[in-house]
Design a protein around this nucleic acid. Structure first.
Lengths: 139, 139
DNA sequence: GTGATTGCAAATCTTTTGCACTAAA
DNA sequence: TTTAGTGCAAAAGATTTGCAATCAC
């Protein structure tokens, strides 16, 4: 089920991305076998902790290259910040509004029926379900 | 069903917002009886067309005051831009990725079953379903 | 070598804020 | 009057871009 290349090198090669030092470092942080949701700023922080020398601009560029190559998916739940999700399977999310944290919901745990037809001339690209949760009471 | 105050003045008064010239102008543009989805920049443009003298900062501030007062709801579907929705009923959205346009989906047209339990200590605030559509082929 | 990639700083875009001015009650 | 609201310009925060230096092949 889960994407587990034994090495990031092969993953980058398969994606047609030149395996540079920076891409390898970021790829190792992202594709370690556990699904992750990171912002650019967070990944930049992780890279620093791991002593990987990568500029913030390169983190942004790399995230988008990974996304375009089909290795990541972008999730927009908050104004002014993007999350990148390493889980490429069809799934949905809880979004914890207090912590700013995403939690995967496997697609099998949700039954979505009876979507209306999309407008003529358009096709459905994706269905995103975001269940907003909070420690606050009520809705 | 639809919120139709005969005048925006009463709507603002009921919301506890002082009916200033700017709020009245923006309120008339927003609450004319048709549901709308606008960005701050768009509303600023409409105000200009209507010869309403309002600054962009005031448009932003007013949108958030209307939101806090329960007159609007914020929808985040694109990185770096917020839409404000005058439809306060429970509903979902198509998002046309080519046009950057939202289309309401009445909640009755969707059956969502079997959501998983939210994590302990949290409650569900809202469930947002965004059906991303495009004139491009496939998904 | 040669073209792709990176880093930095500057630019961009959306949104927020500080503060003197104006207007509603 | 008194206090809330506004406008402007500046600041902030996330993201993108131009370009010379560097790296992968």
């Amino acid at each position: 089920m889960q994407r587990t290349y034994e090495n990031v090198l092969g993953l980058l090669r398969d994606a047609g991305l030149r395996p540079t030092r920076q891409r390898l470092a970021l790829g190792k942080l992202l594709f370690d076998g556990d699904n992750k949701h990171v912002t650019a700023e967070q990944l930049f922080g992780f890279a620093k902790q791991a002593d990987a020398k990568v500029s913030l601009a390169t983190v942004y560029n790399t995230l988008h290259q990974f996304k375009d190559a089909g290795l990541l998916r972008e999730v927009v739940v908050e104004p002014g910040r993007s999350y990148f999700d390493t889980n490429m399977e069809n799934h949905h999310h809880f979004f914890d509004e207090d912590r700013g944290e995403l939690i995967d919901i496997p697609v099998e745990l949700v039954s979505l029926l009876n979507l209306p037809e999309p407008p003529a001339g358009t096709t459905i690209q994706r269905v995103d379900i975001v269940v907003r949760i909070s420690s606050r009471q009520g809705q």
